[in-house]
Structure formats: C-alpha cells, structure tokens
Amino acid sequence: MAPNIRPAEVPMRAAICAVLLALLSSCTNVPLQQGSSLGTYAGMTASGGSLTKAKLRVNPPAVLAAQTVRIAPTSVENAGGSFDAKDLALLTNAVDRALCMGLIDRFKVVVASQPADLVVHATVTDIIATNRAVAATSTVATLGASVAMVPIPRIPIGLGGLSAEAEAVGQDGTQQAAMIWSRGANMLTTRGRISSVGDAYSLSSAFGADFSRMLVKGQDPFKATSSIRLMQKIKASFGSEPKYDACKAFGPAPGIKGAVAGQLGLPPSWSDKGAAISH
C-alpha cells in the first residue's frame, strides 16, 4: 500500500530533494590531468558519471581473454612536492589495494615474480589538498549535529580531490586499456579528514573501482551494469584475508576502525597501516 502523502508535503519533499542534489553536485572541480605515464593517449573517448570526469579506451577482446593480472605499484607524478611522503605512500597503496579488490572479481592477481596476461599500472597525476582546518570544523559540526539527530553537510570550502591515470598492458607491451580520471570531494558523501590528502585518499577507492571494473567487464565502466561479488567485497572492506597472496602486499583494508576514523575526521594514518610488505 502506498504511503499517505498530504498534498502540502509534495512541494516540500521536492524542494528537499532539489537541495540535496545541489549539495551533492557542489564538489571540487578537478580537471582531467593528463600525465606522461601511459604508453599512448590516442583513441581515448570522453566518459564519466555525475561526479567523475574521465577519458578512456579499452580493447574488449584482448581484455576479456586475459585471465591473470599483475599490479605494478602506483606512482606519483607532479603531485607530491607539497605533501608528506608517508601520506603519499598511504594514498598510492590505497589505489593499489582498491585495484586488487576490484580485479579479483574475474582475474587471478599474481605477484611481481610471476608472468601475467595484463600488467596494470596507475599514476596519481594531481592532488587537490584538503584544508585541514576547515575539515576539522566540519567534523566538529557534524558530530554535534549527529547528537541532535540533525544531518548537516560538510562546509563547502577547502574540499580536496584526486586526478589519476592507469593502463593495462599485454604481454607484448601493447596497451589494451587506459583511463584518465578525476573527481573532487563533495559536501554530502565525502567525509572531511584532518589531512591534506584526506579527500584524495577517500576518492582513491572510487578510482580503483572504476578502472578495475573496466577490465572486469571489458567496457566503459560508467555505462556498464556490474555484477559484484557482494560478500567478497564486504569481507575485504572489513579487513578479511584477500583472495590472492598478491593482494596481501597492500595490507588489509582499515575495516571498522577505518569507518570510525572517517566519521571522526581522523587522518588516514590513524587506521590504515599501509603496505604489508615492500613492493
């Protein structure tokens, strides 16, 4: 039975939805930042979603025929001068971890000493720094409002963002898939962390998921429907043992501790211990 909605409530609900959509779209503008790490940038087409900008290309037959994949450590290009080396290491490792979590949906992920049908390498090309003072103020306001059961958006100042690119190369060295990607934090879905790389770290999982989904499906991830092994994803996000040893190199996901840290606005280093081994 449909709920009873008084006529007077309809405009109010519509107004609330409009405000929420406006807030969601109020995110940091992060332009696509093309680096120099990809073998080629030719043939890429514009794509993306409501919050994400992207350009990509994929060779479906070659990608879908691949069964094994190796992840080369994510690097940083022209974005690390003003950031702490430990924070950058956590960020790049978070990208690798997100890629591994997404790729195990179809591929066997192998270690560096083993051959693979595809080698994946990502590069962080730009980091928009999070304003730590504003993030701290937002966190205090949000925590205070949560006690009063009043939802409050993040302060729309000092939001950070991430720009990255990645490619998958076949055994013959030919690029089989590539993506340039950027996304900014927004007022509703990105929790402010008191860290200059806080927003970039939070967005790293979205980049890893988008690129890995392109390889798993062999098509534009922003247009494709995806069948996700939900329980496997949930277990991995809560810090359970990864399916393949290669993924263990990136350390366990922060899990519940990470979720609590995000709610409290704590830096990524509070809950994420980074790579388990040097890789």
Rank of each mutant, 00 (worst) to 15 (best):
N4I: 14
R6M: 11
V10F: 08
P11Y: 09
P11T: 09
I16E: 15
L20I: 13
A22S: 13
S25V: 02
S26A: 15
P31M: 12
P31A: 10
P31T: 09
L32P: 05
S36V: 08
S37I: 06
L38P: 03
Y41C: 06
G48C: 09
L51T: 09
K53R: 15
L56D: 02
P60R: 13
P61W: 08
A66N: 05
V69Q: 00
I71R: 00
T74V: 05
S75Q: 12
F83C: 06
K86M: 10
D87M: 10
A89K: 10
L91N: 06
T92N: 06
V95E: 02
V95R: 01
L99T: 04
L99V: 04
F107A: 01
T123Q: 13
T130H: 11
A133Q: 14
V134H: 00
T139W: 03
T139Q: 05
S146A: 14
V147T: 12
A148N: 12
I152G: 00
I152H: 02
I157Q: 10
G158S: 07
S163E: 02
G170K: 01
D172C: 01
A177C: 12
A178L: 06
I180A: 06
G184D: 01
A185G: 12
T190W: 00
R191I: 00
I194K: 06
S196T: 15
V197T: 14
L203H: 03
L203N: 05
S204K: 02
S205I: 01
F211P: 01
S212F: 01
K217I: 03
K223I: 07
A224P: 04
M231W: 11
M231T: 11
I234D: 04
K235R: 15
E241N: 11
K243D: 10
A246E: 00
A246L: 04
K257A: 14
G258D: 09
V260C: 04
V260T: 11
A261S: 14
Q263F: 13
Q263R: 09
P267V: 04
W270Q: 12
S271P: 11
D272H: 07
K273S: 15
A275V: 06
S278W: 07
